[in-house]
Design a protein around this nucleic acid. Structure first.
Length: 257
DNA sequence: ATGGCTGCTTTGAGCAGA
């Protein structure tokens, strides 16, 4: 199984990019974040024509997540919308089971700035996600949780760690929250392998950040121990970020044998 | 040091993102 995750920053605007990308990379599962579409507007037909079954939950303007499953695979089961036990109107969580693999798509809150209400909400959300995962991992030996975490785990995941020290997306409480997910036995698929230096998944639209390689690695694919043992590759595809009118995020792919 | 771009919104300045 090849699984990918991509924060598309509006699926309405980015649908041509997604369709092009899927035609070149016919992954089995694609987790999308920031679709920014209500369910009535979700391009289900276009994606079906491209060979993908869609499971999605969205809202107006903000958030919205989807999992695309390549046609011909098993039917997704046990679809879970929103984080159980967490009262939240934001549509940023989707889980389903495919061929015995629990697949979770997350759009972790951005957090705006350290010390704000949104930052506190981000940490609460991550704590609730941790609790849910702890139980879910007992039920599913094979689990993958992929998406936009809005957290860079280590200094090497940040173009300028000094500049970002204490800032949202790299503050210690956020990184500790992410480490607590790793402590559940989840592995960062990207770091299972040798990777190029300055590997990032997001670059600010401003300041020519992409061209200057000023990015952060904040989109991750985490694998349960059983799945990590089956992972044979993980990479970031920066090609879509070079296109006209790109998403500010690049897709991440993992191959599971 | 600051803000720098993009997408969205009962269309147009303000918000949120990261």
């Amino acid at each position: 199984m090849i699984l990918a995750t991509w924060n598309v920053n509006s699926l309405k605007v980015r649908l041509p990019h997604v369709l092009d990308w899927l035609s070149q990379h016919p992954v089995d599962v694609m987790c999308l974040q920031e679709t920014k579409l209500i369910d009535d507007r979700f391009p289900e037909n276009e994606l079906r024509d491209a060979g993908y079954h869609s499971v999605f939950v969205g809202q107006k303007t903000y958030n919205g997540v989807a999992i695309l499953v390549r046609a011909g695979l098993s039917k997704p089961e046990d679809v879970q919308i929103n984080l159980p036990g967490f009262d939240d109107e934001s549509r940023r969580f989707l889980a389903l089971t495919l061929d015995g693999v629990r697949i979770v798509c997350v759009y972790v809150p951005n957090g705006q700035a350290v010390g704000t209400d949104k930052y506190a909400y981000k940490l609460r959300w991550l704590a609730a996600c941790h609790e849910w995962l702890k139980a879910e991992l007992r039920r599913h030996e094979q689990l993958v949780i992929a998406g936009d975490y809005n957290i860079a785990p280590e200094e090497r995941d940040v173009h300028d760690p000094k500049l970002w020290e204490g800032q949202v997306m790299f503050s210690e409480p956020e990184r500790a929250a992410l480490r607590r997910l790793f402590d559940l036995g989840l592995k960062d698929a990207f770091r299972l392998f040798e990777q190029p230096e300055r590997s990032y998944t997001w670059w600010d639209y401003r300041m020519l950040a992409f061209r200057r390689k000023m990015g952060l690695r904040i989109d991750h694919i985490l694998l349960s121990t059983a799945l990590a043992g089956k992972c044979t590759a993980c990479l970031i595809d920066i090609e879509p970020r070079k296109r006209e009118q790109p998403s500010d995020h690049a897709p991440v792919l993992a191959t599971l044998s």
